[in-house]
Design a protein around this nucleic acid. Structure first.
Lengths: 145, 145
DNA sequence: ATACTTGCAAAGTATTTGCACGACG
DNA sequence: CGTCGTGCAAATACTTTGCAAGTAT
C-alpha cells in the first residue's frame, strides 16, 4: 500500500515489475546490483526484461524512491531510500552486502569549498572492507586505486 | 628523471608509452579519463593502443605512481599520485576537471566501524559540483543517485 | 638472453535506446 | 482511449584478454 501511494504521488504507474523490484529490495535489506535485482525479480515475473529493470531503477532513483551508488568496480548498486534520509554506505568486499552509515562528512567541507568558489551539488562516500561474518579473509576484487 | 627512478624502483620498465602517460597527466594537472589520456598520448605517440593505456593505468595505480577514482557515471579518472599522500577529490560537473581535497573523513569513522565488527580497507569520497569558472550554469550529466 | 611490453583483434561486462505492442488510470 | 510502460533486439560505452612480435635491461 505504501508503495502504491508513493508511485502515484510521483506520477508513476503501478506495475507488477515495479512492485517486484521494491519487494526484492525490501526483502534483501541491502543494496543490490541491477543484475542481482533482475535475477530475483525473474523468480517473481519470469518474463521480465533487463531493460525494464534498468529503466525502473533509474526512474525510481530519480524520483527518490530508491537510491543508487556506484562502487569502484563500475557497478551500480541500488537500494530502498531509507526513511531517515541522507546517508552513506559500507560495502563488504567479502559478501558484497552493503550497510547504511549515518555519518556524512559534507557538513565540515561545504564552507571550505564555498570559500574556494566551488558549489556542491552531490557527493559520494563509500567505505570498503569486511563485515563481521567475512572477517579479513578472502577479499579479492578491489581495484588498487 | 624522477619518473625513471620511480618506475625502476617498482620493477617497471621505462617505455615511451609510460613516459607519455605521466607527461600528459603532469601537464594537465587534474584527473583524466582513460579515453582523454589515450587521445592526448596519441598526439605524442600516434600508434599507441588503447589497451596499452588501460594496462598501464592499472599497473601504475597498483604500484602507487598514479591514483584512480571511479566517478558516478562509471568512468574511471586517473591522476598523478600527489606527494602529500592520501586525499580525495572535487569533480566539476561543468568542465569535468577534478581537484584534490585534503580532508579525509575516515579518521572519525574508523573506530565506529570497528565497534560494529567491520574492518576498513579502502574508501572513496568524491564531491561533485561546479567550480568557479563554471558557475552553477550548464551542468547536465549527473545521475540522480 | 629473457622477461616485460606493446599492438592488434576479439571478447566481455554494464548499460542504453528505438520501436511496436500492451496495460494502467 | 490516451499516455505511460514493457519486451525484444540491437547498439553503445568502457574495459579486459590472448597472442605473437618487439624492446628494455
Amino acid at each position: 500500500m505504501e508503495l502504491e501511494n508513493l508511485l502515484k504521488q510521483k506520477g508513476l504507474k503501478i506495475t507488477d515489475q515495479r512492485k517486484a523490484i521494491v519487494k526484492v529490495l525490501k526483502e534483501c535489506g541491502c543494496m543490490l546490483s541491477a543484475r542481482e535485482i533482475f535475477d530475483k525479480v525473474k523468480k517473481i515475473i519470469p518474463g521480465v526484461n533487463f531493460s525494464t529493470i534498468y529503466r525502473n531503477l533509474d526512474l525510481m532513483s530519480q524520483k527518490g524512491i530508491l537510491c543508487g551508488l556506484m562502487v569502484d568496480t563500475g557497478v551500480s548498486l541500488y537500494g530502498l531510500r531509507s526513511e531517515e534520509g541522507h546517508h552513506h554506505h559500507f560495502v563488504c568486499k567479502g559478501c558484497g552486502r552493503s550497510l547504511a552509515i549515518d555519518y556524512c562528512p559534507m557538513g565540515l567541507l561545504e564552507k571550505e569549498l564555498a570559500k574556494k568558489g566551488f558549489s556542491h551539488t552531490e557527493h559520494q562516500f563509500v567505505v570498503y572492507g569486511f563485515c563481521g561474518s567475512c572477517g579479513t579473509s578472502g577479499g579479492v576484487k578491489a581495484k588498487s586505486y
